[in-house]
Design a binder for these strands. Structure first.
Lengths: 152, 152
DNA sequence: CTAAAACCTCAACCAAACTTCAGGTCAACT
DNA sequence: AGTTGACCTGAAGTTTGGTTGAGGTTTTAG
């Protein structure tokens, strides 16, 4: 199906242009992420600016950002026009922040594991990765909840 | 329920000591991640080394590693004894690799977004984040699939 | 005009990692 | 011995991000 001359795209057109399955487009519409007009016969016709929205959805997906969050940023967008540079800048700043947070968390875990790999732990009991809230560590040589944890 | 003198822990004990819900312990057992003996009456009794396994499961969870992967590394472990330092070292090396890969992917996306935020894109049409497989970019000023994409 | 291709809705299903519930049993304390 | 709390099983429900299928309608190409 070729792009119609009417400036509106069928669901198949959009699927072809974005690489998103028709079923996913239906789904996004049910979730309120995109909107469509309908023909007299009830078929969907999309304005071109949904393409941009779908691009944004795809970016979010690549970044592991849930659709609910996408819906959230889309709420601030006008429904009837192409999201513009300013919109995209706001969104991308927000998401960059999320990515940064995730990266930092991963870095933290990585360094914990590196410690672990080369660790001088006398016993795994003292490993802070395996025992994040370590009552052994914090209570010194005090009483243990369970006596005689068998060493490895 | 206090720790029994028998060196075996009830499911409630394990739940209390690990912070993992009883239902999750049942689930882990169905998945083959942990094993239990049973009392004459059919109740679960866990050897202490399941605590270590559960720690490892919790670490994996924090790191976003799926249970199937945990099951995979557990397959190489003896079922009847506490996983030891060598075991944990092997596992942590493996998972550190995964974390590193994830971090790199995030870094890549972050820098893309940073480009985007301060981007000199004349139009969003040329943004490589929004248009990863950009036929506009690659085809120069050639024919477009759809004419007159309205600028933002 | 007709047949094929594309489209429609609604319902069910998938994976992961659990939780919740119903209905019944076990064990620990008094 | 009895009560209460902990435990059992199995089935079903939850969330996220969709896919698949049935059964029927619309649009488009020839």
């Amino acid at each position: 199906m070729k792009p119609s001359p009417t400036d509106l795209l069928s669901v198949g057109d959009v699927a072809a242009r974005t690489g998103v399955a028709v079923s996913a487009l239906h789904f996004y519409e049910r979730q309120g992420l995109i909107v469509s007009e309908r023909t007299a016969g009830g078929q969907r016709r999309y304005a071109r600016h949904v393409l941009r929205r779908i691009s944004v959805i795809q970016v979010a997906k690549r970044m592991g950002i849930p659709l609910a969050e996408v819906a959230d940023v889309f709420d601030d967008l006008p429904d009837d026009r192409m999201p513009g540079k300013t919109d995209w800048r706001r969104i991308s700043e927000r998401w960059r922040g999320k990515l940064e947070a995730r990266r930092r968390e991963i870095e933290r875990m990585e360094s914990e594991l590196v410690e672990c790999i080369g660790c001088g732990c006398v016993s795994l009991r003292s490993c802070r990765v395996l025992n994040p809230d370590d009552e052994l560590g914090s209570s010194g040589s005090g009483p243990r909840l369970l006596p005689e944890i068998p060493a490895e």
